[in-house]
Design a protein around this nucleic acid. Structure first.
Lengths: 223, 223
DNA sequence: ACAACCGTTCGACGTCCCTCGAAGCGTCCG
DNA sequence: CGGACGCTTCGAGGGACGTCGAACGGTTGT
């Protein structure tokens, strides 16, 4: 493995597109990256093997998903050094308007069907403090939590093999956030009632005034 | 020209060897680089075209020579970023003992058959101050300079179409240094008398105690 | 149990590009 | 002027690699 080999890992449009997509610090799945770059899944698989074996990307496997992220801060610097010399700046738009957009992603976003970002962690903290949620090694919903959901008009999910409460790694916050059936139901409810709305067609979410009111009413400081 | 294309420029062993060789800040000719990388001159030509067109290297043509150097500080950073991720560090020895070696090269070295580096510039300055040398747009040797050479035991070169005094670009100092027949004769004399000796088999030179004495005797502060 | 989905392996196809030698052009030196 | 040298262009050969579709194993959710 010499210098030319490392450069060769980034000397392909598809692999470069993967790395640029991963610059936002989030973890992507292999299929997401394949769709983003416009190649077949099998093609993405071989590329991802090269990038992981070469030490540029790190992987974490959860069930049938394979999450990928940039391995190292040195890799970030390498990609930035390359971008600084590429006249056609496909990544440059980020620096203009999308530093704010990246902040929005870090604040609140969709992670498949549930909420991620800094906001999702405050939800967990508030729910744990009010005794609605068990967190830690054996997460679950308490009786109070079930009643709380019913009060919100959310049917407590059941009849599925999907766990009610699950921890999902949050790559921007480096802490797990709320997934599982309850996480999905909460997120779905927040979107249908307009507490949260998507920013354009991206995964980024923003909290509406109605969302702030609901937060105060249902998760605000205890009396 | 996108990110993958820039990476592709360095994704070849030969081109990577060129760039690593040029890391010392000196200018190399195309043939030197070809010999250093072990490829045919025609191969080197095509690679150098790619690197120059891609903006990684800059060229300067002098007569039949083509001098190449790293174009930009951003290119230096890119190469260093790549080297930081390459486990097989062919360039790493530089950082250990050869930061001192690089300083030695910047101080005094051979440029073909004459002297280059910081020492060569002090020679010019001292010779100009003593009226031995005309420098600037029309460089040449003065009558006093010719007498000074004879006094040193150096025959004033003649009978050749090679100019007596010529300016040669010094890439570490960004100033021209003394070349031409006089530059070569002075350098040859300094090496044969032991004023200068080569460091190992490299082009780097070091000034001996005898060299310092000779400097004081022949170019020292005027009375 | 069954369907849907994610990821993987494999073989085949096509393309890109790295390499060299021979021939040629311009410059420098005697 | 004639020889030496540095560099370039051109064509041909050959190896490396990116791409896809089809088939398969494993996990998730109904």
């Amino acid at each position: 493995m010499d210098l030319a080999a490392v450069a060769g890992l980034l000397a392909d449009r598809t692999r470069a597109a993967f790395c640029l997509a991963l610059l936002d610090g989030r973890a992507w799945t292999a299929s997401e990256l394949a769709r983003h770059a416009g190649v077949a899944r099998s093609t993405a698989t071989s590329h991802l093997h090269l990038l992981v074996d070469g030490g540029l990307l790190a992987e974490e496997r959860h069930g049938r998903h394979r999450y990928l992220r940039v391995a190292d801060h040195r890799v970030l610097e390498l990609i930035e050094s390359l971008a600084a010399l590429a006249p056609r700046q496909t990544v440059r738009p980020r620096s203009l308007s999308a530093s704010g957009r990246q902040q929005a992603l870090a604040r609140a976003r969709l992670c498949y069907d549930h909420l991620a970002g800094a906001v999702s962690l405050t939800v967990i903290d508030a729910m744990v403090e009010r005794g609605l949620l068990r967190w830690g090694p054996d997460p679950g919903l308490t009786h109070e939590g079930a009643a709380w959901l019913t009060e919100l008009g959310i049917a407590v999910p059941s009849g599925s093999r999907r766990p009610l409460v699950r921890a999902c790694l949050d790559w921007t916050e480096r802490r797990p956030h709320l997934a599982g059936a309850v996480g999905a139901a909460l997120c779905d409810h927040a979107l249908t009632t307009g507490w949260l709305v998507r920013i354009g067609t991206t995964r980024a979410l923003t909290v509406t005034p109605a969302g702030r009111r609901a937060w105060h009413d249902h998760l605000g400081p205890r009396p």
